[in-house]
Each structure stands twice: as C-alpha cells, then as structure tokens.
Design a binder for these strands. Structure first.
Lengths: 346, 346
DNA sequence: TTGTATGCGTTATCAA
DNA sequence: TTGATAACGCATACAA
C-alpha cells in the first residue's frame, strides 16, 4: 500500500472563505454552546457545506487529547454469538458519534493483547473485550499488564463474560443458565447425560459444564466424567465430540446430551443423524445461547437463551458511563431455558 | 461520556530517556531502514520498551498525512452473509498493520453515506462498501457525490456486489448463479416455480430473480409473475413471503420455490412446515449464499455457494493494491450450485 | 463576541 | 549518522 495525496479542505479553508478567524470557525462548527454570533455562524456553516468540509478527526484528537473510537475485540466475527454482540454494540453506538474498530482474534488468546496495544496506539477511548476469558495465566498476566497501561493512559476497558479482570464487566451467567437447564432436563425425565464440553481452558465452556453438573447434582443425578468430551467451540468441534462420545458408550447408555453452545449442538445433531440416531426419540440434545439463525433447525433446539444484542449494548453503556465510575462495575445477564423439540416433552 | 486524562508516554519521553534527539528516536522506532547507529538504536528501543511506548497513531497520521484505518460498511453485521465477509476482510488485514472500522447501516441505505462521511473525517485510507446497491437514484446520487469527495481527498473506495459505482468492485455473479440454479432445478424435473424475491429495490435480490427467470426461460419454462412474492431480505421476510405465496396458490400449483437467499429460505421452510407441507416431498425449496451456519438444517438446503470470506479478502486486496490502479478494477466471484435434500434427486 | 497564539506528538526537511 | 525545527489541522487559553 503506497501513499496517496490527501488534499482535504481544512478548517483554515473554511475560515478564509467565511472571512472569519480560525477560532471562530472552530467554535461555530465544533465548539461548545453558543459563543458565535448568528450571522458569522451562518457564514461559517455555509462555507463548510459548500467546501464539503469534514473535520480531521486525527487533528481533533490531538488537540482535544481524546478520540471517539471504541475498540471491540471478539474471538471470531463470523461466529453468530459474536456477530450478535457486535450488532448490539453497533446499535448502542449509533448516533453517539462513536466509531467502532473491530478486532477478531481468530480464537488465538494472545492476539487480544496485540489488539489492545494497537488500540492504545490509536488512542481508543475504550476497548470492549467480548470473548471468554481463558484459564492461561501467562496470557492473562500479559493482558492484565497491558490493561493497566491502557487504563493508566486514560483508556476504558470493558469485558464480557467472566469477571476475571479488574475492569467493568458484563458477566454472563453461564453457570446459572446451565444449572437451570440441567434441572429442566431432569424434570423431563432424563437421567443419563453426556456433555460436549468445548476447550477445557475456555472459562465460558467450563462454567457451563460446572453449572450443568451442579444442576444435575442438586437433582440427585450424577454426571459420569467419562461422558464429558472436550472439543473445539465450533460446529465441527461439536460434530467430532459427539462422534467420540457415541463411539465410547454403548447404545442406550445415554439419554440426553448437552452441548455447551448451539453451534456445537448443531454439529452434534448431524453426528447423531449420521449414526442413525433420531433426536429426540433416541437421544435428547440441548445447546446454549439460542443463536437466532439456528432457531429454525429441525428438530428445534432446546437451549438457554442469551440476549446477545443486549449484552453488546450493555457493554457499550458501561463504556459510555465510565466517567462516573469509582471502581469496577458488574452487570449480570441471565439466560433463560427454552425447551423445544430436541428434547422430549413431559 | 466525559473526558479522561491521558498521560501517555510520548516520543519525547523515549528520546529523553535514551539521551538522543526526537528525530533519532523517531527514526529508530518508525523511520525507514538503516539510518541510525546500532548503539543508539538499541538505546532507543530499550527506552521505548521500558516505558511501554506506543506511537500515537493520531499524531503519526497528522505528520504523515495518512492513516492505517480501513472502513467496512455492511447492512447488518448480525447477518451471517456480512459477518462472513467481515471475517474475510479481517483475516486479509491481519498483520498488515491495518485497523478496520465497522459500520452497520441496519439496512438503511442512507446511512451508508453517513458512515462514508464519518470515515472521511477519520481520514480512513479506504472504505469497503459491502452491501447490495439499491435502485434508488437519490441515495445513489448522494453516495456517488460523497465518494467523489472521499476519493478527491485521496481515499480509496471498494464496493462489493454490483458494479454500480465507478470504483473498484468485487462483483458477485448473482445473475449467473441464479441462472445455473434454475437450470439445475429444471433438470431435476421441476416445472412450476415460485420465487421469494426480497425487496424489489435491492439489486442483489433483483439480479437473482432475473437470473432465475432467465435460466428457466432458457429451459423453456415460464415463471408466472403472480408467483413472485417480495419480502424483507431476512428470515422473517422469507417466512412471511412463503405464507403469502401458499395462500395465493392452490395445492399442487407449485412444485418448487426459490428464495433469493438462504436466510429467507429457512423462514420459508418453517412456513411450509406450519402449512403441513413436507420439503422436498410436497415442495422443493432452494436458497442462495450457502451460509455455513445454515448448512446443517434439515432437510439440507439446495443453494448457490458463495465464497464469502474470499469476497471479503478480495475486497481488501483491492484496497491494498489500489495505489497502482489507473482505472476502476473488477473482480468477479462466481457461485456454485449445490444440490442437497431440500430438492428432490433425479 | 471575536481574534491571536500556543500546543498536541509525530514525521520530514534541512544543517551540521 | 545525528540534531534542530518546521509543518500537519485543530482546540483553546488568553487578549482585545
């Protein structure tokens, strides 16, 4: 990428054409409340319009010492979980004169730190870390360190998922949701469960497994760890994990499988079909998230609904209101069990 | 959102700590190749590291007269079509020291212009317009006008979808894909078609309908315009349009329905189910895009596969290579018919 | 209310 | 090779 000449009109051009000083032009266009006479203001606005003037945001940032850019870092923007959160952020940002810069780590935790550094360089006003925290102390330490620097520069950091970092956080009640789901499934009569668990280091996955086990325990049902199979947090991960699970257990040993997210559940459903099993007659299947795009698969997926757009919007609200905060705040978002056709009815 | 103090480390701090001049520090850190003595360079790098120095991108932008920001404007980031394209863009941008700013218009065409203005203010190096062009001359004129300004400022504009604007474009062969699909469906024995057509003003939708009709025509099959129902380019739009269509025709009058995208097709499939129709036994159903998240719905959708991530990557490549261009370039991306269970087999 | 002048952090031009 | 200094475009403290 080579350089391009940039011949933008500047505030000076506008001021010259309006026959006023730089300061007056600035005040008329961007300055705070009422300080410019109506006639001059009009002249300046006219000049700006006829010259197609757009304030140089970089220069404004330098002069003001702050930008109107907010960073959003996700694990994978193609994943509907994250694209929904992104939509929520974008909608909340709408009309706030904020531009959102996107980072997609491709599920490599260390890239989160890279993006944070890049966004500090850009002097982003805030960064929203949308993905699950990981159980990896070296990455977490590096991240914490970079967050400290970012914040000491006056930046705001908001996390979504677990309260692992000392920043404003939108906590997703994964554990609670999974517990409720387990309880509902036991109510439906299921007793012998398998779990497609996602990567062990991913706290979101782990919380869901823990919560699920907890819910079963309260109902007096035991979860055999042999039936907990880890796999990637993706459709293929679910497909593969289900294959492994089915290969490891005899027929009839399982009556219900919980995939820790909907995307994995869909992969699992395909694996079932390939194995000649019918859901829910031969096996119940449940997911987590209630991804809207997946709501119409057949049989419809029993899951835990998460208001993902609201999650994104809430994160943005934390950013927008961060000036008044004294210490890290927490917003809790609960999931709601939704029983559908992928599990049997009572 | 109130202001925050920003106490960033500046290049001056680094220079001072290294005991060199500003110029030397600049050259050692960001300047071009080999011009600083090894010892001084080392001192500067050490100082920068120990101070956690991150260059102020705004200041660099001012001094250099250009930024490393690229804008990406989509209709709806939550739509898997766009999130896949976004993923392609992000991946291509990876490691290029480019930051991507996201705009989501929520399907309001005029907001595209707003984002373009905002990104011009930000002095984005380029903007990628990812959504379908619309048949709305007032919006198109406004957009064209703003593009002129953006380009005269040295900015690069790349469009995805139709070649409606005088800019580098990744053309998606909607017409061709739909024609091939029609041909394949006729080969399967279908004769009486319905179409769920999306908004009439949206060129992507319109091209697909035209191509489909064209393909049918070549095979000697007529498409009754009464069976072409318009609706929103969404799941609900497909659901509703299918309901309308089913209400308007008698049983057996239709043997196959083409929804102009997969998301609508999914809604249509639900409408069929609700009407007691089985796909493909009672009615064939086809979509367009081959959205990966929807690949596992049952019955699997016959569709036209579009390499969406590649589309995004190609758009970014056009941005990256724009310096050498003399006149607007075109990259054509073809779709490929994929026959699955939602249409009968031969 | 309006204008003048300074500084924001960096790159790049010019001397040394 | 290194250093001093003038831009870059804007906001704002201060002066008028």
């Amino acid at each position: 990428m080579a350089e391009q000449p940039r011949g933008s009109v500047t505030l000076m051009d506008v001021a010259a054409r309006a026959g006023v000083s730089l300061a007056t032009a600035s005040r008329a266009l961007n300055g705070s409340t009422r300080k410019v006479g109506d006639d001059l203001r009009e002249r300046v606005l006219d000049a700006a319009r006829s010259l197609n003037y757009a304030p140089n945001a970089q220069a404004q940032a330098m002069a003001r010492g702050r930008t109107n850019v907010v960073g959003l870092v996700v694990h994978d923007i193609a994943d509907p979980y994250f694209s929904s959160i992104a939509a929520g952020v974008m909608e909340a940002a709408e009309g706030q004169h904020v531009l959102v810069t996107l980072g997609s780590t491709l599920r490599r935790p260390d890239r989160e730190v890279d993006y944070l550094v890049a966004m500090r360089g850009q002097r982003s006003r805030a960064v929203i870390l949308a993905g699950s925290r990981m159980d990896d102390s070296s990455v977490a330490d590096a991240l914490r360190r970079e967050i400290d620097i970012f914040e000491s520069d006056g930046g705001i950091v908001v996390a979504i998922s677990q309260k692992q970092l000392p920043v404003d956080t939108v906590v997703i009640e994964n554990r609670l949701g999974a517990r409720d789901l387990a309880s509902s499934l036991v109510d439906l009569g299921y007793r012998r469960f398998g779990v497609l668990a996602g990567p062990d280091a991913m706290l979101t996955a782990r919380d869901r497994v823990h919560g699920f086990r907890e819910g079963l325990g309260r109902a007096g049902v035991d979860l055999d760890s042999a039936y907990v199979v880890h796999g990637a947090f993706t459709r293929d991960g679910g497909h593969q994990a289900m294959g492994t699970l089915l290969g490891a257990v005899g027929a009839g040993e399982l009556d219900c499988v919980f995939a820790v997210n909907d995307v994995m559940a869909v992969g699992a459903m395909v694996a079932c079909r390939e194995a000649g099993l019918t859901v829910p007659q031969d096996l119940g299947l449940a997911g987590f998230d209630d991804i809207s795009t997946l709501r119409d698969i057949n049989p419809a997926l029993t899951t835990v609904r998460l208001p993902l757009e609201k999650v994104g919007a809430t994160a943005f609200e934390l950013v927008a209101s961060a000036a008044d905060r004294t210490k890290p705040r927490t917003r809790r978002i609960k999931g709601e069990v939704v029983l559908r056709q992928s599990t049997r009815s009572t």
